[in-house]
């Protein structure tokens, strides 16, 4: 149940998937919302939340990547065309990449900004800046990259969600369900053979 099998996602992968999905979507919404806040103190607090969740995503990304490398990936449905399989794997790869590069570019913004505002991780400890040159120009460049990558990642997430819904409602296969229920297809297979 904890580990992935040839047909099923284990609990660890399922939890990684949904926790990071929630964090990622929440971060996108928060990142968009916080920029329009007029009250500077409230804005400061929202940015600290955004940075704290961002570092959480980065930390989870490392653990998840290690877990993924040490685990087998359940096979995609056999009925899936080869092109779609490639598309799915490519989307998954770039989503994994986004879990690293979007937080890292955010860290670069904090590190290059002339604003003397360090990251205060959930009010627990301070995360130091990366050793990058400080200038308003660098901050603006990294901000643009961070924003672009965030939109690119949310586009990929939308493709990923639509594909999952297509599998569930159009193809009526177990692609979505097995990400909701750890060990799902193994139990299904077992009940069929019994």
């Amino acid at each position: 149940m904890l580990r992935n099998t040839e047909r099923s996602w284990g609990l660890v992968s399922v939890l990684f998937h949904w926790i990071m999905a929630a964090l990622f979507l929440g971060q996108f919404a928060l990142g968009w919302y916080m920029q329009g806040i007029k009250d500077m103190l409230e804005q400061y607090n929202l940015y600290q939340w955004h940075k704290s969740f961002g570092f959480t995503i980065l930390g989870l990304a490392v653990l998840r990547a290690l877990w993924a490398l040490a685990s087998r990936r359940p096979k995609l449905p056999e009925t899936m065309p080869a092109g779609e399989k490639k598309l799915a794997l490519g989307t998954h790869f770039f989503l994994y990449l986004a879990f690293f590069v979007v937080p890292l570019t955010g860290w670069a913004i904090v590190s290059t900004s002339p604003l003397p505002i360090a990251t205060w991780y959930f009010r627990l400890f301070v995360i130091p800046s990366l050793p990058l040159g400080i200038s308003l120009h660098s901050e603006q460049v990294w901000s643009s990259i961070h924003g672009f990558l965030a939109y690119a990642a949310i586009f990929l997430a939308a493709v990923h969600i639509l594909a999952a819904l297509r599998h569930h409602f159009h193809h009526r296969d177990a692609t979505l369900i097995r990400m909701l229920r750890p060990g799902y297809e193994d139990r299904e297979a077992a009940s069929k053979t019994n």
């Binding site: 500077m40 103190l41 400061y44 002339p114 604003l115 003397p116 308003l136």
Partner: peptide
């Protein structure tokens, strides 16, 4: 200060 945003914050209510 080093940045106009810092100046604005120092002038602001908090």
């Amino acid at each position: 200060a080093i940045d106009p945003r810092v100046e604005e914050f120092i002038k602001s209510e908090p």
